[in-house]
Amino acid sequence: MKNDIFFRKLQSSFFFLVMLVLSLMVFLPLICILYYVISRGIKAINLDFFTQIPSHVGDSGGGVLNAIMGSFYMVFLSIIIAVPWGLSAGIFLYDAPDDSRFAYLLRLSVDIIQSIPSIVIGIVAYVWFVMPMQKFSALSGSFALAIMMLPMIVRSTEETLRLIPKTLKEASLALGVPHYTTLFKIMIPSGVSGILTGGALSIGRVVGETAPLIFTAFGSPYLVHNILKPMDALPLLIYNCAMSPYESWHTLAWGASLILIFFTLCINLLIKIIVKKWEVVL
């Protein structure tokens, strides 16, 4: 009997140890990536890095201003496209009757879009925008990114609205407030933190995407402000520079990786701030 309990305790501590070690190992990839990227990338970071475009082949120095601006333009544009689009669909889904077949199909489609590989979305954007326009453009890249953002915005909008007690909606309706006014002035403001979080998460998802941009924005070594022209983006620059045989471009790629990681970190922080600042106590 006594022996039995001892054995059980041993077993229990053994499993605890295994789980502890495996849990600690979750940190491992993150630490390795951060160490690698920071140690290599930090060398590239200086004033030129943020104010110059990449140097000519063979020359050292240069910066990634074109890619930073390009990423900024394209993400900004994709937000403008995806947010009203996704928000409307999310609100529609929330508002649809439970047994609506159309809503069922819409939800299913959103889930399917979510799981389509990003490279396929890139090819589709190529067929839809690049081929008819007969040129690569930042606009087509933004569309590809917007399609990738869509599912997250739709779902987070719908789910956030569902979490708001129905009693709030009824309180507004009982005051003689029309249905859509209730939706836009009561329900959405009450769910603003969840909706913003969904938006921020979707930005985090697309800012590091390379695949949808290869066939659409294509990349450009110059500082471009025209959204109808090919444009560079941080992940594209990383992809192109890392494939090149030049040491100075490799350094740029490491530097770009570092700021990309830094940027996603900022988005995660932003989400925490949004939740804290905008959360509505129900």
Binding site: P165, T167, L168, E170, A171, S172, A174, L175, G176, V177, P178, T181, T182, K185, I186, P189, S190, V280, V281, L282
Partner: peptide
């Protein structure tokens, strides 16, 4: 608007102040 209703669980609008809650019927309409 003529027949008001108060529910089982109090449901003031969480985004509004006390002042705005009282005026909600006017504001929202």
């Amino acid at each position: 608007r003529k027949i008001g209703m108060v529910f089982q669980r109090a449901n003031p609008f969480p985004t509004m102040s006390i002042y705005d809650n009282v005026l909600a019927g006017y504001k929202l309409n």
